[in-house]
Design a protein around this nucleic acid. Structure first.
Lengths: 323, 323
DNA sequence: CACTTTTCTGTTATCGGTAACACGAAATAT
DNA sequence: ATATTTCGTGTTACCGATAACAGAAAAGTG
C-alpha cells in the first residue's frame, strides 16, 4: 500500500502538503497541487481510512438501530439497508447493525434509527452522536420518509378517476406519525371529492384484513376501492374478497402501499404506492454524514414522493392498454 | 474516553503491560493482571478500535458481497444480514455491503460472499483477503449452508409418514450446488422408500409453479404431496391447486423450503423447512474472523440442519392436535 | 558462588494520518 | 525603504494502540 509519505517523496514535498491537497486544497498552490495529484495517480494512492479515523478521532462507523422486533420487519428493510450501506461505502464509512437484542452499543460517529415507537424517544435522547431517523416523527429529529399524506391522497384520486364509487381506507392500528399522515391523506382527499369517509384501523397483518373483509362482507357493495396503508393489509383484502366471490378489479379495487416485494407476491400483482426505499436509504446515509460534518447541527428533513405502480387489482382506465 | 495510558497510570504500570493483559495475558503475572483488570473496570476502559486497527494493519471491516440481482433477493437476506452484523459487532468489526453495482471494492480484512454463480468464481479468485461463502460450493471455498440434501430427505420422509401416496419434487432450475443437493435429497429418499420419482425444474417464481400446476393438472391425482425447493415455488403451487379446486391439505400436500417470511404470507401457513438464517449468518461471520486470525488457512465448512415447521398445507398426523 | 537462562516489565519506534506551530518569502501598508 | 501582514510550506507532536528490543530480577546450573 502506498502511503502519504510515498506520495510526498514522489512529488518532492512534505507529507503535510499532500494531506493538505486532499483536505484543504485551497491552501496549496496550483502548481504543487498538480504535482501531488500526478503523484497520487501514478502511485494509485488510497488513503488509509483507519489512520485518518484515528487522527480525526472518528470511528468511520455508523450504527443502524432497528428497534422493531425482527419478526415484524418488512422486506423493504433489505433495500433500505442496501441503500444505506452503498452510500456509506462511498464515503469510507462502515455500517454496524444494532437490533433490540444488543443492549450495549459501542462507539460510532452517528446513528440511523428505524422502527421508532413513542416509547423509545426517551432512550434515544441519551445517545450523544448525531441521529437521523428513517420515518417521520414529531420530536424534532431529522428524518427521511415518504410523503405519506400526499401518497394516499394520490391513491384516492386515482381510485376515483377509475370511477370506483365508494372508497374505503384500511389503516394500520398504531399511533405513529406515518400512520396518522396516511389517514390524513385519505381524509383530505375525500373531503376534496366531497365523499363519505369510511376508515378502519387494523393490526398490520394480512389475516386481520382478511378477517375484516369476512366479517363485513355484507356491508360492502360492488364498485368499491380499498385503499390500504400497507401491502400486507392489501394482501389479506385481496385474499378474502376472492374467497367471498367478489371480482377484482371489476367490482372491488385494491391499492396497497410500500411496493417492495409483497406487491409481487400477490396474485394478481398489486396496484401499490411504491417507495423508492433504496434511494431513501442513500438519502438517509447522506443526511447523517452531512450532520456529522456539521457537528450535529439541524439538517432538515427529506420527503420522497411515492410512485403509483399499477398492478391487476385496479381497473384499467378507459382506453388504457395493459402493459 | 479513557485510553490505555489512563489505565496504565491508574494501575501504576506501563501501557505495554496493559496491552499485554488484553492480548497476551499469559505473559503477565497474575498480580499485575488483577491490578490492571481492576483499573480497566474502574475507568470503564473500551479499547479504541481504530488505533488497534492501525497498529495491526487491519481495517476491522468485513465486506459482504451480494452478487445476485437485488430484484431476486429473497427476504431471508435480511435475517442473514442481521446475523452477520450482530456477530461482527461483538468483535468490533464493521460491515460493508457491496452489491453488483459497486464495481470497485475498497479495503477490508475479509469477505463474505452470497449469491455466487459459477460465472463469478474466476473473479472471486482475484480477491486477496480471506473469503467465506454463504452457500455450498465445489470450488474449495469455506462455506456455511443448510444441509440441503438431508433437509429434503426429511421432507420426503415426513410426507410419506402422512400417507401421501405420490411425492412430486419441484426444484429450481439453476445449475448450482444447493439446487443439486436438494434434488439429491429427493432422489435418495425416494429410492429408500422405493417409490417412483417425479421431478421437475422451474424458474424460481411463483407464477411459473402456478403455471406448472395449471398445465399438468389432469395428471395429478389426489393424495399427492409437492415437495418444493423453495417457498416461492410452493406459494405458486398452493395458489393454483386452490384455483383448480384441489383441496389442501387433504388431497394435496405442499412443503416449501426456507421458512423465512414467505411461509407466513401463504394462506394457510406453509409447511416448510426452516433455515436458521440468523444463526447461519452468525456462524458465517465467525468463520471469516476465525479465518482472518488464522492468516487465511482452511477452516472447513459448517452445515446447519433445517427445522420442519408445520403449517396448514400438510395433513395432521393421526392423533395430532393442531397447535 | 559466579554464570547462564528464563521471566517479566518497561522503552522506543511505528502504523498513516492531522492539527498546531514555525519560519522564510512575497505582498501590503506606512 | 522599512514595518507589518499574508501566504505557502515544512517541522514537530500526537491520535491510541502494538511489536521488537532492552534490561533488571528471579530461577536454574555446575
Amino acid at each position: 500500500m502506498t502511503t502519504l509519505n510515498d506520495v510526498a517523496k514522489k512529488a518532492n514535498v512534505s507529507k503535510m502538503t499532500v494531506s493538505r491537497v486532499i483536505n484543504h486544497p485551497e491552501q496549496v498552490t496550483e502548481e504543487l497541487r498538480a504535482l501531488v495529484h500526478a503523484a497520487m495517480k501514478e502511485l494509485n494512492y488510497k488513503p488509509n481510512v483507519m489512520a485518518k479515523a484515528l487522527a480525526n478521532n472518528r470511528t468511520q462507523i455508523i450504527k443502524l438501530l432497528i428497534l422493531e422486533e425482527m419478526d415484524y420487519v418488512e422486506p423493504y428493510y433489505m433495500q433500505l439497508l442496501v441503500g444505506i450501506a452503498n452510500e456509506l461505502d462511498k464515503h469510507a464509512y462502515g455500517l454496524q447493525l444494532v437490533t433490540k437484542r444488543n443492549t450495549q452499543i459501542g462507539d460510532s460517529d452517528g446513528y440511523i434509527v428505524c422502527g421508532m415507537r413513542e416509547a423509545d424517544y426517551e432512550w434515544l435522547n441519551t445517545l450523544e452522536k448525531p441521529i437521523v431517523l428513517f420515518g417521520e416523527n414529531t420530536h424534532g429529529y431529522n428524518f427521511v420518509d415518504s410523503d405519506n399524506q400526499k401518497s394516499i391522497e394520490r391513491a384516492v384520486d386515482y381510485a376515483i378517476s377509475l370511477d370506483y364509487e365508494r372508497i374505503i381506507f384500511v389503516g394500520v392500528d398504531v399511533n405513529e406519525p406515518f400512520a396518522i399522515s396516511r389517514e390524513k391523506g385519505y381524509l383530505s382527499a375525500m373531503e376534496r371529492h366531497n365523499k363519505y369517509v369510511s376508515m378502519f384501523r387494523l393490526e398490520n397483518r394480512s389475516k386481520y384484513s382478511a378477517a375484516f373483509v369476512r366479517e363485513n362482507w355484507e356491508t360492502f357493495v360492488p364498485n368499491t376501492a380499498f385503499i390500504c396503508a400497507s401491502d400486507r393489509l392489501a394482501l389479506g383484502i385481496i385474499r378474502e374478497v376472492k374467497e367471498q366471490g367478489g371480482s377484482i378489479p371489476e367490482d372491488f379495487g385494491v391499492i396497497g402501499h410500500d411496493g417492495v416485494f409483497l406487491d409481487r407476491i400477490a396474485y394478481p400483482y398489486l396496484t401499490t404506492l411504491k417507495q423508492s426505499v433504496d434511494k431513501m436509504g442513500a438519502a438517509t446515509a447522506q443526511l447523517v454524514l452531512q450532520k456529522i460534518n456539521a457537528s450535529g447541527s439541524d439538517q432538515g428533513n427529506i420527503l420522497f414522493d411515492t410512485e403509483l405502480k399499477l398492478g391487476g387489482t385496479t381497473r384499467l382506465k378507459k382506453n388504457q392498454i395493459h402493459t
